[in-house]
Amino acid sequence: MDLDPTSLKPVLNRLRRAQGQLNAVIRMIEEGKDCTSVVTQLAAASSALDRAGFAIIADTVEKCAKQDEPELDREQLEKLFLSLA
């Protein structure tokens, strides 16, 4: 996958943020933290992953459709978008 360099940094930052949040969730569970805090942190990680996925799709869907996977039709593209919903 070849992201536009201006889009790459924010995507990587979101993924690193999600990674840190997931590590925090694991640590919180191991330490027996309260459910509300764990779920809140987990939701934040999920949101960061979703945003990274949407950014990747927004930046590369045309390229993927035309170059990497030219056989993708409208229905398959729609499924790709919905996989992150």
Rank of each mutant, 00 (worst) to 15 (best):
K79Y: 03
Q41I: 06
K66D: 07
F54N: 07
N23R: 09
E62T: 12
R27V: 12
D68G: 01
V38D: 07
K9C: 03
L22T: 10
V25R: 04
K79D: 14
L22Y: 01
N23F: 13
E78A: 13
A85C: 04
R17C: 06
Q76S: 14
F54K: 15
E78L: 10
S37L: 13
D73G: 13
V38F: 03
V39E: 11
E75F: 10
L84C: 00
R17E: 12
E62Y: 11
T60K: 05
E31K: 14
L80R: 04
K63G: 12
K9H: 05
F54D: 14
G53H: 04
D2V: 06
A24W: 02
M28H: 04
I29W: 01
R27L: 15
E78W: 06
M28A: 09
S37F: 04
V11E: 05
L15R: 01
S7H: 07
S7C: 03
F54E: 15
E75Q: 15
L84W: 02
Q76V: 02
A85N: 11
F54R: 15
E69Y: 13
V61A: 10
A18E: 05
A52Y: 05
T36A: 12
A18R: 01
D50Q: 15
R27I: 07
Q41D: 03
K79M: 15
L12W: 00
L42R: 08
R17H: 07
D59F: 04
D2T: 06
D34Y: 00
R17Q: 06
A85W: 07
A44E: 13
S47I: 04
E71L: 10
A44N: 12
Q76H: 02
K9R: 09
D59C: 11
A65K: 09
T60R: 11
E62I: 15
F54S: 06
E30C: 11
D68I: 12
K9G: 03
L72A: 05
E69M: 11
L84G: 01
L15C: 05
Q76K: 15
L42T: 01
R27N: 13
R17W: 02
